[in-house]
């Protein structure tokens, strides 16, 4: 996993609530057995005018010019500004894989669905919760100012606006540590292998029926 320390990037606004993971990456693309290559199909049903299929040459497909990520001013964006309950629905990790593959490193929204939120941290994508009021202000600022950029400083837990004003955000200490260092969870957990074995012994005595071969 790539480290996340600081991201200075162009902001793209996705002004709708309850964006679900079926929208982020439609089901036909889940048939891949890889972790990469989902970016061209991020928001497929909104981005293109035809129905996408795996293995297509996406550069030849008709684009929906209205869709925000197709607008010239948002090309190269690495911070996504979204509305409440972003990432609801299916647990597919293909959603953060697609966002990352497209180039997004941070997502700012008033709230996230739990599973999606969790999945982001496993992939070096930082989901940031801000208040509804702050989200509203940011939407207004992005729409009013072409080329609007933000800096996300994870160590300081701040979103820094172009005028230097900062918005503080919260993050779990463990998740912050993993992101800052690009750490693989499994290796960390296996450092506690003895504790896991000890726990298993106790459970095997209390609930032997759980432990089938």
């Amino acid at each position: 996993m790539d480290k996340f320390i600081r991201e200075d990037g162009l902001v793209a606004p996705l002004d709708r609530a309850n964006v679900d993971t079926d929208q982020i990456i439609p089901k036909q693309f889940l048939k891949s057995i890889k972790r990469s290559g989902f970016g061209p199909n991020l928001f497929d049903e909104w981005r293109y005018l035809d129905e996408g299929q795996p293995g297509q040459d996406n550069s030849k497909r008709p684009l929906n010019k209205e869709f925000v990520l197709n607008q010239p001013r948002y090309q190269g964006a690495s911070i996504l500004l979204a509305r409440r309950n972003f990432g609801c629905g299916s647990s597919r990790e293909h959603a953060p894989w697609a966002l990352l593959d497209f180039g997004f490193r941070a997502i700012i929204a008033p709230s996230f669905a739990d599973i999606f939120f969790n999945n982001c941290f496993k992939n070096g994508v930082l989901p940031i919760v801000v208040s509804e009021e702050v989200a509203d202000e940011l939407f207004k600022a992005v729409q009013a100012n072409e080329g609007y950029r933000l800096t996300v400083d994870l160590a300081e837990q701040k979103i820094i606006r172009p005028d230097g004003a900062a918005i503080d955000f919260e993050i779990d200490a463990f998740r912050k540590h993993c992101l800052l260092n690009g750490l693989d969870d499994i290796g960390l957990t296996l450092q506690d292998a003895d504790a896991i074995r000890e726990y298993e012994k106790g459970r095997q005595q209390r609930e032997p029926w759980v432990f089938i071969d």
Binding site: R35, S91, E93, P96, I115, I186, A193, I196, E200
Partner: peptide, 16 residues
């Protein structure tokens, strides 16, 4: 859970 956690549970029988 997501796929990273599927792998995590396979490897460690635990979740963080």
């Amino acid at each position: 859970i997501g796929t990273s956690e599927v792998e995590h549970v396979l490897a460690t029988q635990c979740l963080v």
